[in-house]
C-alpha cells in the first residue's frame, strides 16, 4: 500500500512552561494520508451510479418546474413576446396594414428627427413625467400619513381616495371636464369668487398653456389613491418602537418623519417611483379623454403620437419606431433607478 505524504506538526501547549515542554519532549504528530479506498475501481463505480441518479432527479425536477411555468409562458409568448418582437421588426419596415410589408432600413429612424410632432410628444412626455411623478408621490404619501392616523371616518376617506383609481375612466373624465369647464365649471367659479378677473381665468383643457396642467392634475388625482394604499401598507410595516425611541431621543413630528418614516419607506418609495415613471411614460388614456393631444400639440404625448401614426395615418412601421424609442426610454430610466437603489 502506498503511504500518503507525511506532515510534521509541532504542538505547543499554551499553558505549559518552557521547562514543561522540554520535559515532555516535543510532540510530533504524524498524519498519514491514507488513500480514499483500497479498491479504486469499486469506489468509482459506486460514485458513478450516484451521479446518474442525481442527474435524473435534476431533470425530473426541471420538467416539473417547466410544466408549471408553461401555461403562463405560452400566454406571454403569444400575446406579449410575439407582438413585441413583431413591433421591433416592424420598426424597420414600411407597412400600412393592408399592402405588403417592405423593408425600410433606417428610414423610420431618420424620420424621427424631422418629425416636429414627435419632438413635441417626446418633450411633453418628459414634462408630464418630471412633474407628475414627484407630485403624485408626494400626494400619495401625504394622504397615506393622514389616513394612517386614528381620525374619524378614516375608512370612508380611504375608500374615497382610492375610488378614482377603480372608477371608469370615461365617466371620471366626463365629470372632470365638467368641473374644469372654463365657462361654467365650479373650479373657475370658485377662482372667480376669489377675485380672479374673468379674462385671467384659466381655460384648462381648452387653453394650450393650461392643457398640460389639466392632464397632470387629472393623472395625480386618478392614481394617487392607488399609491396611497401602497404607502399605507409601507407605513403599517414600520415598527412603532422606532417612533417611541425617536420621541425619547427628542425628535419632534417633522424629525420623526424625516429620520424614521422616510428612511423606513425607502423601499416603498423606490417601488412607487419606478411604477409611476413607467406609467407616466406610457400615459395615453387620460390625454385621449380630456384633450386628444391638443390644443395643437400641447398635450401630445408619445403613446398618443404612436396611436395617431398607427391607427389614424396607418403608418405602422413608423409608429413601431416611436414605440421602440419609448421602450428604450423606459428601460434606461428604470435601469438608472435600479442602479441608484443598489448604491443606497
Amino acid at each position: 500500500m502506498l503511504m500518503g505524504p507525511q506532515v510534521l506538526i509541532e504542538v505547543r501547549l499554551p499553558n505549559c512552561s518552557q521547562a514543561d515542554i522540554r520535559q515532555r519532549g516535543r510532540m510530533l504528530v504524524t498524519i498519514a494520508h491514507a488513500t480514499m479506498s483500497d479498491n479504486p475501481v469499486q469506489a468509482g463505480r459506486k460514485k458513478k451510479l450516484r451521479v446518474v441518479s442525481k442527474r435524473r432527479r435534476r431533470v425530473e425536477n426541471a420538467l416539473i418546474a417547466y410544466s408549471f411555468i408553461a401555461p403562463n409562458f405560452l400566454g406571454f409568448a403569444v400575446f406579449t413576446l410575439g407582438p413585441i418582437l413583431f413591433a421591433f421588426a416592424l420598426a424597420f419596415m414600411h407597412w400600412d396594414g393592408s399592402n405588403p410589408i417592405t423593408f425600410a432600413g433606417l428610414d423610420n429612424f431618420w424620420r424621427l428627427f424631422e418629425d416636429k410632432a414627435f419632438i413635441d410628444a417626446l418633450w411633453n412626455t418628459i414634462v408630464f413625467t418630471v412633474v407628475s411623478v414627484p407630485a403624485t408621490l408626494a400626494c400619495a404619501l401625504g394622504l397615506a400619513i393622514l389616513l394612517n392616523q386614528k381620525i374619524f371616518g378614516r375608512d370612508f376617506f380611504r375608500t374615497a381616495m382610492f375610488f378614482p383609481y377603480v372608477a371608469s375612466l370615461v365617466a371620471v373624465a366626463v365629470v372632470w371636464n365638467m368641473i374644469f369647464n372654463p365657462e361654467m365649471g365650479p373650479v373657475n367659479m370658485i377662482l372667480y369668487t376669489l377675485g380672479i378677473a374673468p379674462e385671467n381665468l384659466p381655460g384648462w383643457a381648452a387653453d394650450r398653456h393650461w392643457a398640460m396642467v389639466t392632464v397632470i392634475l387629472f393623472g395625480i388625482w386618478k392614481s394617487m389613491g392607488y399609491y396611497m394604499v401602497i404607502y399605507l401598507a409601507g407605513l403599517q410595516g414600520i415598527n412603532s418602537e422606532l417612533y417611541e425611541a425617536a420621541g425619547l431621543d427628542g425628535a419632534n413630528a417633522w424629525q420623526k418623519f424625516r429620520h424614521v418614516t422616510l428612511p423606513q419607506l425607502a423601499p416603498t418609495t423606490f417601488f412607487v417611483t419606478v411604477m409611476l415613471t413607467i406609467q407616466s411614460f406610457k400615459v395615453f388614456d387620460q390625454v385621449y379623454m380630456i384633450t386628444q393631444g391638443g390644443p395643437g400639440t400641447s398635450t401630445l404625448v408619445l403613446v398618443y403620437h404612436i396611436y395617431n401614426e398607427a391607427f389614424i395615418s396607418w403608418d405602422l412601421g413608423y409608429s413601431s419606431m416611436i414605440s421602440l424609442v419609448l421602450f428604450f426610454l423606459v428601460l434606461a430610466v428604470t435601469v438608472i433607478q435600479f442602479r441608484r437603489q443598489k448604491e443606497d
Binding site: N239, E241, E244, A245, L248, D249, A251, H259
Partner: peptide, 29 residues
C-alpha cells in the same frame, strides 16, 4: 413629554434605527 423627562429607554427589540450606523444611532439623540 418623554423627551423632557430626562430618561432613556432600552427597548425589548432594541428599536435601533436600521438605516443609521451604530455611531449615528448613538449620536442621534
Amino acid at each position: 413629554p418623554s423627551k423632557d423627562r430626562d430618561i432613556a429607554m432600552v427597548f425589548q427589540n432594541y428599536a435601533l434605527y436600521p438605516h443609521m450606523t451604530v455611531y449615528k444611532n448613538m449620536a442621534f439623540g
